[in-house]
Amino acid sequence: MTAPTMLLLLADGRFPAGAHAHSSGLEAAVAAGRVTDLATLGDYLRGRLATAGLVAAAFAAAACRAAEPSHPRPSPSGEADQSRLRPPPNGDGDRARLTPSPGGDAGQVRRAALARLDAELDARTASLAQRSVSRRQGKALLRAGREIWPAASFDELPAAPGGPHQPLVLGLVGAAAGLDPAQVATVAAHATVTGSASAAVRLLGLDPYQVQALLVRLAAACDATAAQAARAAEEPPERLPAANAPLADIHAEAHATWEVRLFAS
């Protein structure tokens, strides 16, 4: 494995990207009486991993691949990998390519690939509240990324008003840190379970040793999700995973309207 310390730095909950303020749906699930103890927390985390975790990890890995020209490999069909990073015909990307721009032609290809990933992830996130949370978290991570890796080409991210989706920024941050797409997927999957678990310790007063033991039991599932996501990230954006949890969407919408809330999500 290359860059093991860099991997640990990015996965650390103390990395300053605002994770502490997000329970990723857990606060709403606790209020709804669906997560009350260690056992229900375990169910919740497995559900998150299989849905939001898989999708986030796949998009983060795909963004990392798009950002780093050395990552794309020939696809099983033998077709050159760059072909599916090309912008759709008649799209803005084709027109923009006629004029020189920072990053040149390769920069335009990356911009177009990231814009497609952003649109695809938007389409997979049914809840407006969750879309805006993902963009706010992306903005927070982008702020950290720009400060820490000033030379990285974060400007190739789509300029959405609320910020770019968090998994896309994670992919670029990972690439800037020298991680490969599989490592980036691991960071994303790991964050999915540890963020909500940490919120559960604070909200429910669960025994932190028991919660850590639960995370240890989930480690293999987390690795498997990351590996699945990294494989999926070799597919074109429209074929990336679209696993979803309608109840989580409903909870997220309700949570956003609460007058009193401890967590931003």
Partner: peptide
């Protein structure tokens, strides 16, 4: 919102 960590939001993770 500070996610039960008011000190974190003003000291360690200020984004």
């Amino acid at each position: 919102e500070t996610g039960c960590c008011p000190h974190t939001a003003i000291r360690d993770d200020i984004g």
